[in-house]
């Protein structure tokens, strides 16, 4: 059975001023074809002004199974949010 060509993750920037966001993935033998295929697959209705394609194998992701432990350090630091603090009545522009 022939092997699949590499998997690419596709990111599209919908308009100037917005960030690229992930829209899906596709298979292509190289980056140039991935880019062309991404245009045909994900921007048939003018959904974007810029596309990034990234080899899926190059993405390092956090493990879903370890998400509790991984994100735990932030859990007890509510003082990072402005709402943690009591503002005395009458103090303006704070």
């Amino acid at each position: 059975m022939p092997e699949d060509s590499p998997l690419w993750e596709v990111f599209v920037r919908p308009r100037r001023g917005l960030a690229h966001s992930h829209v899906g993935s596709l298979h292509a033998p190289d980056a140039a074809m991935a880019l062309r295929n991404a245009r045909d697959l994900y921007t048939r209705r003018q959904e974007g002004v810029s596309i990034w394609v990234v080899p899926a194998a190059q993405i390092t992701a956090s493990s879903p199974d370890e998400k509790d432990a991984f994100f735990d350090p932030a859990a007890d630091k509510v003082y990072r949010h402005p709402t943690f603090y009591d503002v005395p009545e009458g103090a303006p522009h704070l």
Binding site: E3, D4, L7, G24
Partner: peptide, 19 residues
């Protein structure tokens, strides 16, 4: 295009496109 979105979704369960 719809076929390709759905193949990609199915592949997230571990099956290859070729299969």
């Amino acid at each position: 295009g719809h076929g390709l979105y759905l193949y990609a979704a199915a592949e997230t369960l571990g099956v290859t496109r070729q299969t």
